[in-house]
């Protein structure tokens, strides 16, 4: 009769699939993310009318688009629970760790899916040729993991706040800044036909590991008041 739930892959998978099923039926986050990305890329592309961008500028543009896409859609995982009134049940029946991992995975898959659309469009719209695809993909992957992890944590922090969407962006940006700058620098390097150093990639991977570890340690405190 009594069952103390432990962190199980079943519970994590249940949270992830619940998010995916709800999203596939409402298309709330996907719609916002894709529309923002398409609008931003196409408007800048049309505005510069074929003029080639410096690698630093192009890299910054790519990551700014990804960042604001993340800000537009990733907070949904907790804000929606709060607004729909399902948060109380989730706090009662689920463990914090299952919720954290399930929602982090969903945000990561969503962001990677979006990056899979944005990155090719970015190369087409701005006539950019990528010489080192593997390092480019690794930088995108590491950057997305960092963004998804920070966004999941800060979304949990702001879910009870008033003006949560504005606070979410303001709170996420400074925490994400080291990863954000590294991602822009390494992308600029790759676009300049240069290979990133292993230590630079390790820094990004280390940042991701630190944020996920912080989430594991702190999320239970956020979850149970």
């Amino acid at each position: 009769m009594a069952r103390v739930p432990l962190l199980s892959s079943n519970a994590v998978w249940a949270v992830f699939t619940k998010e995916a099923v709800c999203e596939s039926r409402t298309k709330y986050a996907v719609g916002a993310l894709v529309m923002f990305a398409l609008t931003a890329l196409s408007s800048v592309s049309l505005a510069i009318a074929g003029v080639s961008l410096a690698p630093e500028l192009a890299a910054a543009l790519l990551w700014i688009v990804l960042f604001f896409c993340a800000m537009a859609g990733l907070a949904r995982v907790f804000v929606q629970e709060q607004e729909a009134g399902t948060l109380l049940g989730l706090r009662l029946y689920a463990t914090g760790q299952a919720v954290f991992w399930g929602k982090l995975l969903f945000n990561l898959v969503l962001l990677l899916g979006l990056t899979g659309i944005v990155a090719p469009l970015f190369t087409v719209f701005f006539g950019i040729e990528i010489w080192y695809w593997l390092p480019f993909v690794i930088v995108l992957l590491l950057g997305c993991v960092g963004m998804a992890a920070v966004a999941t944590l800060t979304a949990a922090m702001v879910m009870y706040a008033q003006g949560k969407h504005a606070i979410f962006t303001v709170l996420t940006f400074p925490v994400l800044l080291p990863q954000f700058l590294s991602a822009i620098n390494l992308t600029a390097k790759i676009l300049s036909e240069d290979m990133p150093e292993l230590s630079e990639l390790m820094f990004m991977a280390g940042y991701d590991a630190a944020v996920v570890a912080a989430g594991i340690l702190l999320f239970d405190y956020l979850w149970q008041e």
Partner: peptide, 16 residues
């Protein structure tokens, strides 16, 4: 908390 079940007006089900 893991021994409790709650039915309350504030606890909602997933509409989707």
């Amino acid at each position: 908390i893991y021994y409790m079940g709650l039915v309350a007006p504030e606890v909602s089900m997933y509409l989707a």
